[in-house]
Design a protein around this nucleic acid. Structure first.
Lengths: 209, 209
DNA sequence: TAGATTGTTAATCGATTAACAATC
DNA sequence: TAGATTGTTAATCGATTAACAATC
């Protein structure tokens, strides 16, 4: 077990382990060896054992891993058992889809507020949440202390609102904009969802590789 | 210049170089050194020079890089100048947002067809494209030969339609589902957009790090 | 006990950083 | 020419894979 810093490569693999184990559990299986899991996931057994042993010895020699136990352990490591409150900014096509489409509760979050600057949207209700005017952001945050902001707004809007959000105590961003938050706020946690970058990577691979 | 295989790490950085250079160009700058670019992007100058030299010597000793030239060179490397036709499957909240929100043309793609299995959606028009019944997929593909499929459908639906798509000549997937396409189709190019994995990674970082 | 499989150390591989000669 | 900065090689660092003793 490694109590030091866990590498990004390992962290990024955890959600996938979590998903696969959830499926195996749902399929009614109870145990699995690192070798069998490696074949199902397209990894090496060695890597799986290394990854898991960053967090503890969840297996048993001669037996393998208990699927249900390992699934919930990884869930806890990911912090899925401790919901963090989030607000979403920008209720365009994308913001609306994110609000409707994502199951926040099963991913460690709780969506508590929706904001937009377009007066015509204010008051509309999505997933039981009213869209609020962005001018009420300060008040809302002081009362509800959200930890995370989801930015479904263009780069310019993200640039102009991020200072305010950090000042209001936002500790993490789920960032769909192209504004590079981690350059300006190195201590805030940022996860980028860059659709365009992903598409361009696909474009590259279609021509080369 | 390296004519062999380019590593994934390098490829994944190209779209970000492309974006930054586009912004510098739009700001009216004409030249930049690897050192200055490294400071703006939060990388090392060494890494930038290594990355670029995988593809060719785009700089000039004592001068640096011509921003406009480098920008368009990277665009060409990414294949943005050669549009690939794409179809999108699943016009739910997410599919609709992707259709509306993404500028495919500037990312090397051309969206030519929308499909859903829900009769009530068929015929509706988004971005000048009619939503087609999924039952007409074969016919459409034989006539229009799309290279890429964008999957905005649940895992089960993705599992049941991917064989058909590969048989119809699809060479790449932009995959929003949780179905692991690259396990079954190792030769097809797959770019995953896994919202849930990204959120869980953010959850981890908010608790640890 | 014998067989299986982990946890963990050592070896390999790959990616990043540093250094510097080439050269504009 | 002198100064700046690349392209490229060498050194370092980190991540993955292999191997195997521990042990269930």
């Amino acid at each position: 077990m490694n109590n030091g810093m866990i590498s990004t490569s390992v962290i990024k693999r955890l959600p996938r382990y979590y998903r696969f184990l959830g499926e195996l559990k749902a399929a009614g299986l109870t145990r699995i060896s690192s070798r069998e899991l490696s074949e199902r996931m397209g990894l090496t057994a060695s890597q799986i054992r290394q990854d898991l042993n960053c967090f503890g010895g969840f297996g048993q020699q001669g037996y393998g891993y208990n699927i249900s136990l390992l699934h919930s352990e990884i869930g806890n490591i990911l912090g899925l058992d401790r919901p963090k409150s989030a607000i979403l900014i920008g209720i365009g096509n994308l913001g609306r889809a994110v609000t409707m489409h994502i199951n926040f509760e099963t991913k460690g979050f709780h969506l508590i507020g929706l904001f937009d600057n377009k007066e015509s949207l204010v008051g509309q209700v999505i997933k039981n949440l009213p869209i609020r005017n962005i001018s009420t952001l300060d008040e809302f945050c002081r009362e509800n202390l959200p930890e995370v902001a989801i930015l479904c707004i263009p780069k310019q809007a993200a640039m102009s609102i991020s200072d305010q959000l950090v000042r209001l105590g936002i500790k993490g961003f789920w960032n769909f904009s192209h504004y590079d938050l981690s350059l300006k706020y190195p201590d805030v946690k940022v996860e980028n969802m860059h659709f365009g970058d992903s598409l361009m990577t696909l474009s590259y691979r279609l021509h080369h590789d």
